[in-house]
């Protein structure tokens, strides 16, 4: 059965077994045209194995994968010209320049995009004649993304595109990814970084131990699995954490003179502030925010993704 036109990736009951252990254990996914889909999970959760099966690099033990209405197992020759892939930890030929690298990959396709356009798109003009080995990590990733776009693909797979990059380089890559979405491409983004998924993704799936444990938009996930609101006090004295602890709440000392607690709603917030005022406990300011994806993930998996980041 062909997937509908709006669904560009449809995965059913996908299983990958190594030594009798299911690294990927019965995954179902549907990804719509034009959306950024973030695939989140700790190391060893099965993210890369799943995405490589969808790309056709790995052979599934069981299940079906329809990509652009084509069966990946049978029609990989037709699928390849229509997808672009940035593999995890991708690197290129050391002694070849940026322009030569992009030209090479472009020449592998019949519908190769203009190299100069890609260089401009990825803001690589200044580095076009530099050898790949002399580029910074951020520039290398930009070259990798350029290489993933040489065939003007309909679906782009980006496996950990910002791992190991400094914050500024990461922001640059995010800008490129947003631009790709703007041009109508479907993006399958595999990442460790919660803030990346939160910043970029239309929809998120969380994978753990080879199974999808949550799926939806960022807001949906936070609403469903979040812990409500987080109240943070700034410029606190020694009394405040003790006082809050005595109310039976879990107190999170974040350093820099800050302390946070979880609250469920506005009434609870007002109640706490009233009690503190009555008790004469001092602080300089407060901040209230919704739970974030990081906290959702922590709740779902029982582990923090930040610790998993290489």
């Amino acid at each position: 059965m062909a997937a509908s036109n709006d669904i560009v990736i449809e995965v059913k009951n996908l299983v990958k077994t190594y030594d009798k252990v299911n690294a990927v254990d019965g995954i179902d996914l549907k990804i719509k045209r034009g959306e950024i889909f973030a695939f989140l999970g700790p190391n060893g959760a099965g993210k890369t194995t799943t995405v490589e099966m969808i790309e056709g690099i790995r052979k599934p033990t069981k299940g079906s994968i329809m990509l652009l209405s084509l069966d990946v197992a049978k029609d990989s020759g037709k699928v390849k010209p229509r997808i672009g892939v940035l593999p995890q930890e991708f690197s290129s030929f050391d002694k070849v320049t940026v322009k030569e690298t992009i030209s090479f990959f472009s020449s592998l396709y019949k519908n190769g995009k203009k190299v100069d356009d890609l260089i401009e798109l990825l803001d690589l003009s200044e580095y076009r004649n530099k050898l790949y080995q002399n580029l910074s990590g951020g520039l290398k990733q930009r070259v990798g993304i350029a290489v993933a776009l040489v065939n003007d693909p309909e679906v782009v797979f980006l496996d950990e595109p910002t791992t190991g990059l400094d914050p500024r380089s990461r922001q640059d890559v995010w800008k490129v990814i947003k631009g790709l979405k703007g041009s109508g491409k479907t993006i399958f983004l595999t990442t460790h970084y919660m803030e990346e998924a939160q910043e970029l993704a239309d929809r998120v799936a969380v994978i753990n131990h080879g199974k999808i444990i949550a799926e939806g938009s960022v807001d949906e996930l936070i609403d469903t699995y979040g812990t409500g609101l987080v109240l943070t006090f700034n410029g606190i004295g020694p009394k405040l954490p003790v006082f809050l602890g005595n109310t039976g709440r879990k107190v999170d000392l974040t350093g820099n003179g800050q302390v946070s607690i979880k609250i469920s709603d506005k009434d609870e917030l007002l109640g706490i502030l009233e009690i503190l005022k009555g008790a004469g406990v001092k602080y300089k300011g407060i901040n209230v925010r919704r739970s974030n994806l990081e906290e959702v993930f922590l709740k779902l998996t029982g582990e923090s993704l930040k610790q998993e980041v290489k």
């Binding site: 690099i57 892939v85 290129s92």
Partner: peptide
């Protein structure tokens, strides 16, 4: 080691 073969396997070559 650099993953170039992995990348090439997703291209028509």
């Amino acid at each position: 080691q650099k993953g170039i073969f992995r990348k090439l396997s997703t291209t028509p070559i």
